[in-house]
Simulated scan of single mutants.
Amino acid sequence: MDSPMIYELRRPKRIDQEKTYPAMFIMHGIGSNEQNMLSLVDGLEDQFFIFSIRGHLPQPPGYAFFTIQGYGKPHREVFDDAIIKLTNFVDYACSQYPLDLKKLFLLGFSQGAILSMTLGLTLGNRIKGIIALSGYIPGFVKEEYNIKPVDNLSIFISHGEMDQVLPFDWGVANNKYYRELGANVTFKTYQEGHTVSLQNQHDFMTWLMDQVKK
Rank of each mutant, 00 (worst) to 15 (best):
L86F: 06
F79L: 07
K142P: 00
L107G: 15
K85S: 11
S154E: 12
K148W: 09
R76I: 02
I155R: 04
G171R: 07
P149M: 04
L119Y: 10
K176P: 01
P167H: 09
N174S: 13
G124P: 13
Y97C: 11
F109R: 04
S154N: 12
F156W: 03
G120D: 12
P74L: 04
F140G: 05
K102Y: 06
Y177N: 11
F156C: 12
K73S: 03
F140V: 09
P138N: 02
P61C: 05
V78Q: 11
Y136F: 13
P167M: 14
E143M: 08
I68W: 10
D169A: 13
S95Q: 09
G72K: 06
K85W: 10
D91V: 10
R76M: 03
T118M: 12
S110E: 02
K176M: 08
V141L: 05
Q164P: 03
R126A: 14
D81F: 01
I157K: 03
V150S: 05
V90S: 00
V150M: 01
F109E: 02
G62A: 05
I157G: 07
D100C: 04
S158E: 15
P60R: 15
F109W: 08
G135S: 12
C94D: 10
K148E: 14
F168A: 10
P138T: 05
Q96I: 12
K102D: 15
E161S: 08
V150G: 03
Q96D: 05
F168C: 07
K102I: 00
